[in-house]
Structure formats: structure tokens, C-alpha cells
Design a protein around this nucleic acid. Sequence first.
DNA 1: GTAAATTAATTAACATGTCAAGTATTGCAA
DNA 2: TTGCAATACTTGACATGTTAATTAATTTAC
Lengths: 152, 152
Amino acid sequence: MAKPDQYQLAVPLRPTTRSLPIALLRARETVMEPIRDMLAKSQISEQKWRILRVVDERGPVEQTAIAKDACLLLPSLTRLIAAMEQDQLIHRSPDPKDKRRSMVRIADKGRALIDTHAPESQDIFTRLEDQFGHKDLEHLLDLLEKLQDVKL
Amino acid sequence: MAKPDQYQLAVPLRPTTRSLPIALLRARETVMEPIRDMLAKSQISEQKWRILRVVDERGPVEQTAIAKDACLLLPSLTRLIAAMEQDQLIHRSPDPKDKRRSMVRIADKGRALIDTHAPESQDIFTRLEDQFGHKDLEHLLDLLEKLQDVKL
DNA sequence: GTAAATTAATTAACATGTCAAGTATTGCAA
DNA sequence: TTGCAATACTTGACATGTTAATTAATTTAC
């Protein structure tokens, strides 16, 4: 009474809980929930928030670099930057050394937005640390940082 | 000669490399690159691939559950499921016990798609394991699984 | 130096994400 | 039993994601 599956040679996929891309996505959803609530108050999207942070962190920076650091594609970035410039969250100026580029820097209103949310952001992180454990969280961040440098 | 910043009380944000949501996103981009290449050959999107895997894993399942497991919102899922049903990747049937629901299950063509990509998928994972280290990878997956259950 | 290849950014077209509102059904409470 | 809240989607409108094509400027190769 051989079961038909006996000769099955198909390679089974990993269970989704052990699929790294899916696990990263699910974990991120958990962490993003309170942050989304926070940003909703300011009518600002997750993407614009990432752009603000990257531009704030890097200072005057070209769009290609923002795209890489904020995990956005250039076409999306073009539209987002245009809207954010309109809203006075950032400024943009042509690069005199390379006329193809424009340099982006944070504007007062953008900086104010960051300052406004920084305490709540820190509070969310602290709550996470309390529940997840300081050591595990640091270790997780180390592993994620290492993962970003892997070349596949 | 006091620097103006001397009295600044603003809470600084964490550097983006140590921001968990951003680190999760960047890490995911690294891992997804070869998978996107793989899926592009079959003209299938990342989202549809996740749906296929979840439906395959869970068997006949309602859409709300798929949405949760595949990290999609219901409106997106409605459209994706419609397209995938059209393409015969999945089947959908009304739940006799609850007329609001419909149960989704994988179709032959969907299963074939999974079988087709399983070896390459496994190969990608192996390459990752080689570069990243088996132990670190398992630990990372453990931490991500734990993170998903945190309540903020 | 000049043509060809490369880079930075943009645009267009369509897929997917997201929020708000709507429909049908079910569960629950008075 | 009735009516009201909750659930499971669905739809519409607009934001963002994604690919391919395009433009302008720069770099490279000859």
C-alpha cells in the first residue's frame, strides 16, 4: 500500500515562520504599529518620515543616496521629494559641481517635525526594549546590520 | 563663548542604522534582491508569492487570515485574490457555514509554481546561510519570531 | 577632443498600499 | 424575537511601488 507521496521529489519550501523575508516583514509590522499611530497625528507617511530622518542624518545629500538609505526607488522618491518641498519640510538646490544632481537638506519645518516626535519615538523604543529585552534587542540590531552587508 | 546648542533639550533620534523598523527594512531589501530576480522570471509579484505560500501552508483558509499571515491589507488582498483566481493559481469557494466568508485554496497551477521555484529558493537560502553563518541565521529567525509576538 | 557609455533624475503607465465608506451576514443583548 | 453591534469582505479614491522609456549632464574610451 504505497502512498503516492512516497516518491515525491519536490523540494518543500521552508515554513513561512522560518522564511527570512517573511519573518522580517511580519516583525516589522509588529514594530510599526505604534509608529504609524504616531505619524498619523502629523499626517505624515512612513516614507516621508524615513526621508526626513535620512536627510537629517546625512545633511545635504543627493537623491540617489536618499533612495538607498530610505529603501525607496527613485521614481517614488521624485514624487515624495516634490511633495515635501511643497510642504516646506525639505529644501532642494542644484549641485553646482554636477548639474544632474540636486542636493536635499532638511528645512526648519522638517526639523521641527522630528523634534516633535522624538520623545514619543523614544518612548516606543523603550517599551519595546522592556518587553523584548535590552540584550536581545541589541543583538537583533547587530544581526540586521550584518545582514545588510551580505552580498548574494 | 557658549555654543547655542549648549542648552538644547531636544531628544535626538536613534541613528537610522539602529532604528529597528529601518534596519528590518534594509535587511529585507538585501535578502529580497535574488528572490525578486527569481520571481520576475514567472511574472509573479512578491505579494502573490506570499499569498501562494500562505495558502499552500494553511490549506483552505479565509481571506482575513491570509491578510494577516501575508502582511497585506484586505483591500489589496481582494484585488490580488481576484487576479490570482483569474490566472487559476488559486480557487475560491463560499463558506457554507458563514456566507460572509470565502475559503481560498491553492490550485494545481499555483502548486506547480511553488514546485518550480522551490529548488532555486532553497539555493538562495543556502547561499545566505553560507555567507551569514548557520548559527547566526537561526538565531536571527528566533529573534524575529519572538519579536512578532511582542505587544506594544 | 569626440563618440559612446554611464549616471542622476524625471515621466508615464500600471500594480499595489492605504484609508474611508459601503454591503451583506452573523452574533449578541434587551 | 428584534434591533444593534461586530465581522468579512468589497469598492472608490488617492498615495506609493515598480518597470520601462526619456532627458540632460558627465565620464570613459578611443
